[in-house]
């Protein structure tokens, strides 16, 4: 299965942020989406999540050469600013989430199993989400986006608010689950992208471009990416 983006364009007033994008993202891989500040990474995610209307083009899921529209349950979107209902406790939010997605949550894990999986301490599980720290809210947001097993997982700078230990745990978790998802991971941090992602895609001047690693070591790959970002910047 793959996510196909065809001729996707998006402008704000006179500024064209996404220019006729064409790309295929395959299941089983983590794609690192790199781009400079204001390059349009979040806009690209917002378009895929239908938070923003697109100007032209299309995107869909393709399996065995058959096209499927992307449904609400096909997509999980972890925003850089965590969004969780602050009047609920983490347990209540998870319970609610599991109930409304019960047809998609196949294995019978308990809510505490999920908390254990995400390493959320027992004493925090019944606290109101409004009293959670930024990083903790991010963990909960990540958890609910994962447990419904969406085909596409969009992660917008998800690890920046985690401490180093949690960030490592999250990376490990993403590697574990990647076989079941199409994961697109947006970040500014080159080292993180090189460490975690299978493919690097840069978004610059409104265009998506894959930077092939081939036989390069990480150092040379990194130089190639930086060069690509600089080149497109001055194009």
């Amino acid at each position: 299965m793959k996510l196909v983006v065809e001729n996707l364009s998006k402008s704000f007033d006179q500024k064209q942020v996404l220019k006729d994008l064409n790309f295929s993202f395959e299941k089983g891989k983590i794609y690192g989406l790199l781009g400079r500040n204001g390059a349009g990474k979040t806009t690209f995610f917002n378009c895929l999540n239908e938070d923003l209307p697109i100007d032209s083009g299309s995107f869909y899921l393709e399996e065995k050469k058959e096209k499927h529209p992307i449904l609400a349950e096909d997509i999980g979107y972890v925003l850089s600013t965590p969004n969780v209902p602050e009047f609920l406790t983490a347990r209540e939010f998870l319970k609610f989430f599991c109930e409304i997605h019960q047809d998609r949550i196949s294995n019978e894990k308990t809510i505490d199993d999920y908390f254990d999986f995400m390493k959320i301490d027992p004493e925090d599980r019944d606290k109101l989400l409004k009293d959670y720290s930024h990083g903790m809210k991010n963990k909960v947001q990540m958890l609910v986006n994962i447990i419904a097993r969406p085909t596409i997982l969009l992660l917008d700078e998800p690890l920046t608010s985690f401490d180093v230990v949690v960030a490592e745990e999250m990376k490990e978790m993403l590697r574990e689950i990647k076989k079941d998802h199409i994961i697109i991971f947006s970040t500014h941090i080159m080292e993180l992208a090189l460490d975690l992602c299978d493919e690097i895609v840069i978004l610059n001047k409104g265009v998506l471009e894959e930077i092939d690693k081939k036989d390069l070591d990480n150092k040379k790959w990194k130089d190639k990416i930086i060069q690509a970002l600089k080149e497109t910047d001055h194009a």
Partner: peptide, 12 residues
């Protein structure tokens, strides 16, 4: 502020 602001970011 306390509910839809965050929940409307979820497509479901």
């Amino acid at each position: 502020i306390n509910c839809d602001h965050s929940m409307l970011t979820y497509r479901f």
